[in-house]
Every structure is written in C-alpha cells, then in structure tokens.
C-alpha cells in the first residue's frame, strides 16, 4: 500500500488517470501531458487570442480600418486571387533569399579575415560598425536611385540589413576554437586553409547558425523595407498599396503572410542545423 492509497477515501473510485496500472509506467494525466507537448500550449493561447480578438471587434464594432477582425482578414485573403498572392510572395521571397545568400557569401570571407588577422580586424571592424549604424531605411531611396530598377537595389538593401549579425557570429565562432586545436594544427604543419576548413569553421557552426537565425528574419524585413521604397510587386508593396486604398483587411492579410514567411524560413534554418549538425545544438535540445 502506498501513501496515496492510504489517503484515498475508502469506497470512492479513484479518478481514471491516477489509478496506477501495474504494467505501465506512472504517467501524468492526459490533459497535463498534452499541455506539456511543445506546440500545444502556444497553439491554444493563439486560438484563444483569435477568439478574443474576433469577439472584441464585433462587440465594440471596431471599424476595420482600425482593427479588422480575423474573419475580415480571411475575407481580405480571398479578395486577392491565388495567382496574385503567389506573384507577391515570390517577389519578396526572392529578394529576401538573394539578400540572405549575398550576406552569407560576403560575411564568411570577412569573418575569416577578421578572425585570422589582427591588422585586418583593426582596419575593417570599425568600418563594419559604421555601415551597420547607417539607418538603412534612410539610405534605401539613394540606393534605388543609384542601382536603378530590378532586384539589385532591393538585394543590396536586404544585404545591408541582414549581414551584420552574420559577420559578428561567424567571427566570434571562428575565434572560439580552443587554442590547443590551433596548436595541434600548427604542430602538424598543416596548410593554413585547412585550419579554417577542418577546425575553425566546424567549431564556429553553432555560432554561425545563431547568426543565420537572426539574419533570416532580418532578410525578410530588408526585402519589405526595399519594397516600401520602390517596387511594383511584393508583399511589402502590397501592404503599402492596400493601406493607401484603405483596404485594411487586405493589408493585414499581407502581414499574416509575412509573419508566416518569416516563421517558415526560420524553421528551415533551425531544422537544417538539427538535421545536418545535431552535435552543434546546445545540450538538451537534441
């Protein structure tokens, strides 16, 4: 007889979930187990929030140009054809991804240079900080004028917004290699590029991925900012256009798509790390 058995009032049937079955491990009640699965809690919160939002906007009849209800936003979705949505989404996604790729391609050699050479680090780092401090939104119109129409100016703007976290995280990662391994490499008289490719870069992987996770969402922001300045396509453009026409539910629908896009891209980066570099995940996240 266990302590719980003793406390149970005699004759009363114990609640289903807490009755211990001999063959099965003791488990939490079903409800509690569900609550502890990672997606359930945020999902429930989110749904509750939607219901609250819907009922409030209806109850107080909030005009849709101030805050459209979720159902109005759904209507906003439907008022635009799937083909048009696809066009806008593709325009934004393309710029965001191109900008992201350029950021990565530019950051990597810069980070290697910064990590390897104190001279270069002294010369380049302040410059990078200056570039990072430039309010890109303010420079965007200038970039558009200089680079003309097409994707190029938008990709450059996206790059300017998203590259800095990558450079910083890569440099930190490359410098985080244990000095013993660098000594091992030197004691083997291995070519210096192999010290980078076989030791420093793999060591930097966890750092690089944290930078990549920040940068991927910044890339979406960059693409949208560039569309605000000059574009005839893209979700950013669509939101601006819809707002100017007072089609707020449509604008909100665009916003929802942007959030979904950011989340999806973030997940792709996270899962890439999880699948390709499981050892690089912090303990307890494997």
């Amino acid at each position: 007889m266990t302590a719980t058995d003793l406390q149970r009032p005699t004759g009363a049937t114990p609640p289903e979930a807490s009755r211990p079955t001999p063959s099965v491990q003791p488990r939490l009640p079903l409800g509690e187990r569900l609550l502890r699965t990672p997606v359930v809690l945020p999902l429930v919160t989110f749904l509750l929030l939607l219901v609250l939002w819907e009922s409030c906007t209806r109850l107080f009849s909030v005009p849709s140009y101030i805050l459209p209800s979720p159902s109005r936003i759904v209507l906003g979705f439907e008022s635009v054809s799937a083909g048009r949505w696809a066009e806008h989404i593709w325009a934004t996604l393309r710029v965001a991804l191109l900008g992201y790729l350029v950021s990565f391609a530019v950051s990597l050699p810069i980070a290697v240079g910064l990590a390897k050479s104190r001279l270069l680090s002294g010369a380049l780092y302040p410059l990078l900080v200056v570039i990072q401090s430039v309010p890109v939104v303010a420079v965007a119109p200038i970039i558009i004028v200089v680079l003309g129409t097409g994707d190029a100016p938008r990709v450059v703007i996206t790059f300017m917004i998203s590259f800095f976290p990558l450079v910083v995280s890569m440099t930190t990662g490359l410098a985080a290699t244990p000095p013993e391994l660098i000594e091992l490499s030197r004691s083997l008289r291995a070519p210096s590029f192999r010290e980078i490719t076989q030791i420093r870069l793999p060591y930097a992987t966890p750092y690089i991925f944290s930078g990549m996770k920040i940068s991927i969402t910044l890339s979406v922001i960059g693409a949208v900012v560039s569309e605000f300045v000059a574009a005839d396509k893209g979700i950013g453009y669509f939101i601006q256009f819809s707002t100017s026409m007072f089609k707020l539910p449509q604008a909100w629908a665009g916003l929802v798509i942007l959030v979904a896009m950011s989340l999806l891209l973030f997940q792709i980066v996270s899962q890439t790390q999880r699948i390709l570099f499981p050892w690089s995940l912090p303990k307890g996240q494997k």
Binding site: P178, E180, L181, E183, L184, L188, Q198, I199, T205
Partner: peptide, 24 residues
C-alpha cells in the same frame, strides 16, 4: 602532443578524431 583537456573535435566520432592528424 597530449593536452590537459582532451580537446577533441566535437563533431567527429572517435575514429575520425584519432585519424585527424593524417586528415589534417
């Protein structure tokens, strides 16, 4: 050289760590 801490490559298994000098 053997160091105070093993300082192995965390992404490489035992075999790859041992063969690392040759690979490097």
């Amino acid at each position: 050289i053997v160091f105070q801490k093993p300082t192995l490559l965390p992404w490489a298994n035992v075999e790859d760590n041992v063969v690392f000098p040759a690979k490097h």
